[in-house]
Simulated scan of single mutants.
Amino acid sequence: MEQLYEIFMDRLARTDTKFVRYLHGKINWISRLIVVTGARGVGKTTMLLQHIKLSEAESSSLYISADNIYFTGNSLYDVASKFHKLNGKFLYIDEVHKYRNWYTEVKMMYDNLPDLHIVVTGSSVLDIAKGAEADLSRRAIVYNLEGMSFREYLNFTCGTEIRPYSLNEIVTHSYALPENIPHPIPLWMDYLKVGYFPFFREDDFYTRLDNVVNQTLEVDIPTYANMNISTSAKLKRLLYIIARSVPFKPNMTEIARAIGADRGSVADYFVYMEKAGLISRLRHTDDKMALLEKIDKIYLSNPTLCCSQSDGKPDVGNLRETAFLSLMRVNNRVASSPVSDFLIDGMTFEVGGKNKKKKQIESVENGFVVKDDIEHGFLNTIPLWAFGLNY
């Protein structure tokens, strides 16, 4: 316990609270059991430590990482029990997916230690979701942390305090950037390349991002789905195909032939890759039956992944659509438009460059042209970067 507490205090001392992720203010931190999911590298650990600092609850809190060698001979439940006896109130367990059957012991904590508030998070979205949906389904409140938006990137890099803008505010041009950002395009281009992941300032960023992707494909998905090692190679080929498509319209038979898998397995691969935060599947409808609708297009989950998986030279049209979907799906239900690119709450969006025409939305009520490479919008023409202010 003393060793774990020393590690906790050391990490807390090195935690900066100047920039805090969007999800922090949305979590009901007084809940007894919170599960935070999110793809690898999006900042879950930092958010937990920041919350402890901001809530000024260091004396009654303990942060532990379940991958610590300490847990080769000690159980999570034993630590929680000892902490509880010392009048501990808030236990934060990071990398919990690396502890075998973690959800069983967390359930025991919830049931047997009623005064203890527990927050768990981990990098393997699949395993976290599996546990939360099974043993903890009636006990845990689950939140998902996405990568950084353009708004967050600006706040992080420029020291601004831009608030989120709703979709209605964006389409009515009711948004604004501070005076110290007179020209957003250069910053927007930087965001597309690296800004989705908070660790972009670290050395060899793309190498680190490749490691994140490989860990997800080689460890997280195969472990969750009980796949053999050869399957990870098929997953990599599938990701490669998606990354170089314009955009990718799935044909299960052709894909199965291309990666050497059967047609049924390919559908499962898409589900696993989406749950792991690598891809986004765009469906034909935006109603409540969306899960039953046919998939129209498949994109990588974010623009930074587009750049990393295409050697820094992504198809520009695919990159723009990926950015729009990545930024809008956090707060909105996004579907494929029958006449254009995207449909959100009865509004149709056609995404393109500065020379994009309005032909495809001329006969559509509530149609908008989303243009990249422009600083300002007018009437139903909106700059693509503005949608990055949505969360």
Rank of each mutant, 00 (worst) to 15 (best):
N180D: 15
Y153E: 05
L187V: 01
L76A: 05
L23H: 05
I221H: 08
T231M: 08
K26F: 11
I229Q: 11
Y22Q: 10
F248W: 06
P164S: 15
L235D: 00
L300A: 07
E254V: 01
E152P: 00
T104N: 11
P178S: 10
S308L: 05
S326W: 05
N390M: 14
E274P: 02
M328N: 09
L192R: 03
D78F: 08
P314H: 07
D67M: 03
D210R: 15
M47T: 07
Y240Q: 13
N380L: 02
S337A: 08
I52C: 11
R320C: 01
I128G: 00
V96R: 01
D190C: 01
V246E: 14
Y92E: 04
L12M: 09
D262S: 09
M227T: 03
I118M: 02
D373K: 13
F8M: 02
G41D: 06
V125L: 07
V219H: 09
F197P: 01
T17G: 03
T231R: 08
S75I: 05
Y191V: 04
D78E: 13
N214W: 08
I162F: 05
A258N: 12
M109F: 04
S310C: 13
I229V: 14
I259L: 02
V330T: 12
Y269V: 02
P164M: 11
I64M: 10
L113T: 00
V369H: 08
L86V: 03
A225M: 10
K234I: 08
N101M: 14
D311R: 09
D16I: 09
N318E: 06
I141P: 02
P247Y: 08
I181S: 04
R40L: 12
Y110H: 14
F90Q: 04
L379D: 13
E254N: 14
E375W: 01
L86N: 13
Y143N: 04
L209S: 03
I242N: 03
T37F: 06
I170M: 08
G195K: 01
F368Q: 06
D111T: 01
N68V: 06
D262E: 06
R138N: 10
I185D: 02
N228H: 08
L282H: 02
S265P: 01
L192K: 04
Y92K: 00
S60Y: 13
Y5F: 12
